[in-house]
Amino acid sequence: MTTPDGAVLFACIGAGLLYGLLGSITHLRRQSLRGDVLAHSAWPGVLVAFAITGEKSPVVLALGAFVFSAGFGLVITWLERLFPRLKGDGAHALLLSGSFALGSVVWSLMQRHMEGLGQAGLKSFLLGQAAAVQWPDAWTLLGASMLAGLFVYSFRRDISGILFDRDHAFLLGQPTLAVEWILDLFLALGVVCGLQVVGMVVLSALLVALPLAVRPHTKSFGTFVLASTMLGGAIGFVTPWLVIFLESSFGHPGKGIPTGPIFVVMATLVAIASLFGPRFNNKSVATGIGVRR
């Protein structure tokens, strides 16, 4: 059996760690679909960055994507604070459709005004190209997960404050809105780092599935975040090996099995197994999933 490519292996581990960490926090903020929304809202950013600079270099496009998805993320947080009726996913759906519509309009404008516009570099930015993963991608993902981990560790008190009782945290003088906005910025950063490597669907699946897999088994915030991160890393480690095994047993020559969907299916199966399977922590059996006693 051959070994997987090192860059692919480390990119998968990095993605697992990053989205396990960020996902555990978005899960507790009851905004599991925010990753998906931010990934969609990167699209007009990519187009605008390309229209302004005329370059297709990943750094320029990523910068545009980050500006837009961070901006939309902050607007969502602000709208939800301002209008309680938009809680749930009203604000998410509104900004998802708004940003993507903006993207299509900008795209049709660009097609008319710019010469020789190939779709190539721009669309793959959104859908990911796991086959062409390079070492820089892997380092970006690992670095982003380190950075996010450092932030979450050093602000763990403020973060658990806004997650579990925001009004109480506000009264204690904790910077609730600032921490929420920094969390949004980190989610946007994580989304933009992973967008080119793993793609939108894999990213939103990991953000949801990893914390769901861990949630039934623990009631402690620290354990939950750590376990979700580690689980992500573990699934990221297993996936490339599994892909190679599947390719050697079922694959046809010239038709590779894509890594992304296998990653998603693995994470989702683990989540489903853990939702319906036995619980490690006997105390949480009676309370079920995601509710306080």
Binding site: Q31, D36, V208
Partner: peptide, 10 residues
């Protein structure tokens, strides 16, 4: 949100 996010990528 979590239910939708789990089902559609699968």
């Amino acid at each position: 949100d979590a239910a939708l996010g789990l089902v559609f990528p699968l």
